[in-house]
Simulated scan of single mutants.
Amino acid sequence: MIMDNWISIKIAAQGPFDLKRTFESGHSSFPIPLKDKQDRWYLVMRPTSINTVIITRVAQQGSNLVAEISCPQRELKENEVQSMKKILRTTFGLQLNLAAFIEEFKKDPIAPAFELYRGIRLTRAHNLFQSLICSILTQRNSIWRWNAQARTMAKLLGEKYPVGHFLIYSFPEAKTIVNHSELLTKASLGYREEYVLETAKTLANKEKKLEKLKKVPTNEAQNALLELKGVGTKVADMFLLYGLGKMDAPPVDIWIQRAVSHLFFKKKEQTLAVCRDKLNEHYGKWAGLAQLYIYCWARDHLK
């Protein structure tokens, strides 16, 4: 089906906003979307609150996010369009007052990163199951490789939708992965394949259980995630921050460990747990956002 009934939505940002940099930062809860020649990125979204597939293409106009949405199955109701506006605002981190964060930490050790990576936003999942699987795929993996693996999973197991001159794919549901597990091998996930399949089995027909984690304290949510096979502290925190938006769960990998040790402990290497605690202590309610800027800085400056 060719999409031709697009509904336009415009969302203003508080503070700097750079959609391209946000996608290319690689720190996200979903793979970098496909882009057309008009610099519009395409996503297949299935919001829990609307319970239908919505094809979304996004672009930047000035400091605004301009989104166009289309439902392949039916016309969207006005209340659903308004719901999508709220979802898109949080998906691209536009509900966060980035200007206030920058002002509060303008004399902080990471302040130079605010200009170097100006406008990068903290994204949040539009599909919690996809976010959890992508978090699992990040284990001992490069940004570009886990992105490729997630896209391959969608191509092998998801639904396809033609837009313009190319196809985009939805991310598969847990039950689909379980029912067609033989296709996972073609996604070249390596040892992560077992973790993905076991997580899918646990959540098959129970994906809404992930929604409930939004309402519980971060430590309790983390403990629940750690019960899943292959999910350690860093993967759990990736999902808690980029999936559920819990700002007090900054994921700490080797880049964050190096950077926090360098910036706050006179280059003396600290444990992952100490670095996580330091981020929460120093940045408070902004810890998750600070982690994103520290990660970008560390990747470019601490080779």
Score class of each variant (00 low, 15 high):
residue 247 M to G: 05
residue 219 N to A: 13
residue 279 L to V: 04
residue 35 K to T: 02
residue 204 A to N: 12
residue 177 I to K: 11
residue 132 L to A: 05
residue 120 I to R: 10
residue 237 D to E: 15
residue 71 C to S: 13
residue 294 I to W: 02
residue 293 Y to M: 05
residue 44 V to S: 04
residue 63 S to T: 09
residue 182 E to T: 06
residue 78 E to T: 07
residue 136 I to T: 11
residue 234 K to A: 07
residue 100 A to N: 03
residue 1 M to V: 10
residue 273 A to T: 13
residue 242 Y to T: 09
residue 285 K to S: 00
residue 16 P to R: 11
residue 100 A to H: 12
residue 265 F to A: 06
residue 106 K to S: 14
residue 36 D to R: 02
residue 209 K to Q: 15
residue 37 K to A: 13
residue 212 K to R: 08
residue 228 L to T: 09
residue 210 L to Y: 14
residue 187 A to R: 02
residue 236 A to T: 12
residue 144 W to T: 06
residue 78 E to I: 05
residue 215 K to N: 02
residue 223 N to C: 03
residue 113 A to I: 12
residue 281 E to M: 08
residue 270 Q to Y: 13
residue 294 I to L: 01
residue 230 G to R: 09
residue 31 P to V: 13
residue 209 K to M: 15
residue 245 G to I: 08
residue 214 K to D: 11
residue 250 P to N: 06
residue 193 E to W: 06
residue 213 L to Q: 09
residue 169 Y to N: 05
residue 51 N to W: 10
residue 277 D to S: 00
residue 20 K to E: 06
residue 15 G to Y: 08
residue 152 T to C: 14
residue 130 Q to E: 15
residue 238 M to P: 01
residue 219 N to E: 15
residue 150 A to L: 12
residue 128 L to V: 11
residue 201 K to F: 03
residue 35 K to R: 06
residue 226 L to Q: 03
residue 166 F to P: 02
residue 285 K to M: 08
residue 103 E to L: 11
residue 157 L to D: 03
residue 253 D to Y: 03
residue 122 L to T: 05
residue 176 T to H: 12
residue 116 L to K: 14
residue 157 L to Y: 14
residue 125 A to E: 03
residue 300 D to L: 11
residue 141 N to G: 02
residue 94 L to G: 01
residue 129 F to I: 00
residue 250 P to L: 10
residue 9 I to C: 13
residue 197 L to I: 03
residue 209 K to I: 13
residue 75 E to V: 07
residue 102 I to F: 01
residue 299 R to Y: 01
residue 195 Y to C: 03
residue 70 S to C: 14
residue 245 G to N: 05
residue 237 D to T: 13
residue 175 K to S: 12
residue 187 A to P: 01
residue 146 W to R: 04
residue 233 T to S: 15
residue 164 G to D: 09
residue 279 L to C: 09
residue 6 W to P: 01
residue 199 T to K: 06
residue 92 F to E: 09
residue 203 L to Q: 03
residue 275 C to Y: 02
residue 24 E to A: 06
residue 18 D to S: 15
residue 300 D to W: 00
residue 147 N to G: 12
residue 3 M to N: 00
residue 205 N to G: 12
residue 273 A to C: 05
residue 65 L to M: 07
residue 172 P to F: 12
residue 254 I to L: 04
residue 119 G to S: 02
residue 185 T to I: 14
residue 294 I to R: 04
residue 12 A to P: 09
